[in-house]
């Protein structure tokens, strides 16, 4: 009986919590997005779709595509770096695997803002990278790395890489090595084993990791502010400026909702992909 009461209590608590701190704020954002902007009161009646229409102005479409492109690039680079790393980690004896994961997490005990400032020192005209390039004679003039889209992607990859690696490690963990041995016994080449067994079976990890990198990458305005020279490179920069500088809250809210819709769409695709994998007799994917 007690157990049942506790269960009920836990469910109610969770629902109230989510309702109060997730549902209500989002409804407020949605509501704000269809109100009219006002200098005095931030958002007022009457309801209007004006802000939503403005989303489709060419200048914002450009930011949207740029944001999408930078986030995609970040995701692909994280995947290329994270996939072999996760594979190696998963195959190591437990002790080493703990050490490697620990080493990957340690920098994250330092605030990401501080680490982003540190990247400025590394990429600057007199920073480590340029000093090395100049010193070895690869270039004669310092390369302009800082305050470019390159620096933004560099920063995003650095900050978000663990979010790619962790789901991948858990996917590799569940990869049944007997399947690979069987494939090898039957004469499958490494490439064939990789393409036909490893990739499909780690697909849930690939998708989960990609989402966890891609979605935050669209919004990390401070990385673009510090490393990209505070031009409006990401959707997150536009949203921040609409709320804090221009004070057009309905427009900022419309942008936020649009971002949420994109995220929801991607999560839905993830759900579909997962279901397909499960139906094909792939992984039991409850844990992801």
């Amino acid at each position: 009986m007690n157990l049942l009461n506790f269960r009920r209590f836990a469910i109610v608590l969770t629902l109230v919590w989510l309702g109060l701190f997730v549902l209500v704020p989002h409804v407020l954002v949605l509501l704000t997005s269809v109100m009219s902007p006002d200098a005095q009161h931030l958002a007022v009646w009457p309801l209007t779709l004006n802000s939503w229409e403005r989303l489709f102005e060419p200048v914002y479409a450009e930011v949207f595509w740029r944001s999408l492109w930078l986030s995609t690039l970040t995701t692909v680079i994280c995947l290329v770096l994270g996939y072999p790393f996760a594979y190696i980690v998963a195959k190591l004896p437990n002790v080493w695997r703990g050490v490697l994961l620990f080493l990957m997490i340690v920098p994250f005990w330092t605030n990401s803002l501080i680490r982003t400032y540190a990247i400025k020192l590394i990429l600057g005209n007199k920073g480590l990278v340029n000093a090395a390039l100049l010193g070895t004679g690869v270039v004669d003039e310092p390369l302009q790395l800082l305050y470019t889209p390159f620096a933004v992607v560099f920063g995003l990859v650095y900050v978000l890489l663990p979010f790619m690696v962790l789901p991948l490690v858990s996917s590799f963990d569940k990869l049944d090595s007997t399947l690979l041995e069987a494939a090898q016994d039957l004469g499958a080449s490494f490439w064939a084993r990789f393409r036909l067994i490893i990739v499909p079976l780690t697909m849930p990890g690939i998708i989960a990791g990609s989402l966890m990198v891609f979605l935050p990458a669209m919004g990390m305005f401070y990385v673009a502010d510090l490393l990209g020279g505070a031009k409006n490179l990401l959707l997150g920069n536009i949203i921040k400026n609409q709320f804090l500088v221009v004070r057009d809250w309905p427009f900022g809210a419309a942008f936020s909702v649009a971002l949420i819709v994109i995220m929801a769409g991607l999560l839905w695709l993830y759900f579909l992909a997962n279901r397909r994998i499960n139906r094909q007799g792939g992984l039991d994917d409850e844990s992801l």
């Binding site: 914002y60 450009e62 031009k231 409006n232």
Partner: peptide
């Protein structure tokens, strides 16, 4: 000013 500013920083 604010409207123009936003456009400038967005690259227009």
């Amino acid at each position: 000013y604010d409207g123009y500013w936003e456009k400038l920083k967005t690259g227009e």
